[in-house]
Design a protein around this nucleic acid. Structure first.
Lengths: 311, 311
DNA sequence: TATGGAGACAACCGTTGGTTGTGGCCGGGT
DNA sequence: ACCCGGCCACAACCAACGGTTGTCTCCATA
């Protein structure tokens, strides 16, 4: 099915005749006739009843029409999402199910008229480059890792601390714990595949390891969270860290447990980054929204690496 | 833009490489390469970065991907709306802005997961034929006009009485009235273009005229409500009837007035009609919903033709 | 009854979109 | 260090699609 054909269908439905639709679309009446016939062959029903002085929609045609319009609307938005110029606010975050995702959902509820696009870049370096190039408008990241101070043209504000939780299977030694202290984790194997050196998230876990003497294995490629969850669920001796705001969707029978970590609570600090000169109006709205709804970061009893910008 | 190309894009994005996507789609790798190149030419940005061992999404590609998926979802629904078999509940009503539309909106809010299609057929005769043929599942209509008793296989229930209002321009003699009695309308010109003999709505207004001695002109073709509103707004001596639940969208400076009519209140009776044997599960839901939320019909002080099924 | 406007069908043809064949690039194994 | 294998791009070729022109039928209207 071709969007041009849908445009033809809508034009013919609006005009009530093929001839006029053809004129609008700058093609011949025969072309319109063929396109409609092709569409009808495609969907398997007759969409117009042809009369000697025009063509009117059948019942099926009437039912199909709003769907066709919707399709064209969505197509327009899809193209707009990548067209330069007035385009949706494009935001990067570390993971699709991180706490930043919850913030953006809340923002979308508050301002449903603002078009949003979410992307996930590799790390803070790519994110900063994308912000400077204008490829994205904002980014939720932890800053500023050692050796990578934020450039002067990038501004940031800390918006949310996400407490880490331990994710373990039902056969794990800590499976029945209501919560665990960081000290209790010493000696347990914690697996975080895909932890790539040089990224800000690797730097975060490096500091966590150094500070509390944990053991984190970063071996093996990251085959995605599904594969990770499967392995964790089935392996008694293995645990992993996961953002406490993560909304997991996994088969109910996995039996996975999420255990809060305390003394102190390790929190992953999300800051919003943007370019000083970015004029996107929705960016100002987002910043104002986050400032108004900002809650709990830098609270007592929490831990972050000392390179994290305090407020 | 072609939906097949979008499917190719999504498949390639999911697979992370063109080769595998090509295998899934049962075409050659070269065809996928060409399609992606065409799509990129179409939207004007590069969607993939080609590497020697695959292709990964650019930032723009990431932003475009959810839109592409949405487009395919909408396309699927569009086709489903006309496919026989499990399809959306298809409901006919007399006008897109009648009270029935409000009922269906409320139903949609209550059951957003139920797919709905609304069509507008010519009259009760077409509606009954469509219900019997299965082309529609239900219809909001006034029944049962003289000489057209409902067939035995069609069931009905009265669901809503819509009070009529007088619609007049700012220069009309009654423009400043808070309400008018039917008796006061005697001698005023009431214009209802498109009132077609033999339809149930024409029968309704015929009875209204006969009962209260009104003057209704049905001359001229109906060029749509916009044209009607324009004329009414500009013509001091002209009025028309309009459903009291109608949500009008007209330029604010039209200056149109809607005046309630009393003594008695003429109400247009909407009944839900359906086929005795229609098994569509959403139909049962709709009937239950309407039964639970049904309000005010057959109230004292209202008038309907005596052929209207009382309850 | 003649006329004009609208859609369908047929014939024709250029362009599009598929295929096969081939070459370049880069990572990993030997 | 080198070669192999996997993956994508480019070129050439060809069928099929989608457009145009020309013509016919149908029916409402004058």
């Amino acid at each position: 099915m071709d969007l041009d054909i849908l445009r033809t269908f809508v034009a013919a439905a609006d005009a009530g005749q093929f001839q006029e639709a053809a004129a609008e679309l700058a093609v011949t009446q025969q072309a319109v006739s063929k396109r409609i016939a092709a569409l009808e062959r495609d969907v398997g029903v007759r969409l117009f009843t042809r009369t000697p002085r025009g063509a009117e929609l059948t019942i099926d045609g009437q039912a199909f029409l709003p769907h066709a319009r919707e399709l064209l609307r969505v197509a327009e938005r899809a193209v707009a999402s990548v067209r330069t110029g007035r385009r949706p606010l494009r935001v990067d975050m570390i993971a699709s199910r991180s706490a930043a995702s919850g913030l953006m959902r809340a923002f979308h509820r508050a301002y449903p008229e603002i078009d949003l696009d979410v992307v996930m870049l590799f790390d803070i370096e790519k994110a900063v480059a994308a912000i400077r190039s204008g490829a994205i408008d904002a980014s939720f990241r932890a800053v500023a890792m050692p050796g990578r101070p934020l450039p002067e043209d990038i501004e940031s504000v800390r918006v949310l601390d996400e407490p880490l939780q331990l994710l373990i299977g039902p056969a794990h030694a800590l499976a029945s714990a209501r919560s665990v202290t960081i000290a209790q984790l010493t000696g347990h194997r914690i697996w975080m595949p895909g932890l790539a050196p040089g990224t800000e998230w690797a730097a975060y876990y490096d500091d966590l390891v150094a500070e509390f003497g944990l053991t984190i294995e970063a071996t093996g490629p990251n085959f995605g969270s599904d594969a990770l969850l499967d392995t964790i669920a089935d392996t008694p001796a293995l645990a992993t860290f996961m953002g406490g705001k993560t909304r997991l969707v996994w088969p109910a029978d996995h039996g996975l447990r999420r255990i809060p970590v305390t003394d102190p609570v390790p929190v992953y600090p999300h800051s919003l980054l943007w370019h000083r000169d970015n004029p996107h109006p929705a960016l100002a709205t987002l910043r104002a929204h986050l400032a108004a709804t900002a809650a709990g970061h830098g609270a007592a009893g929490t831990w972050t690496p000392d390179w994290v910008i305090p407020r």
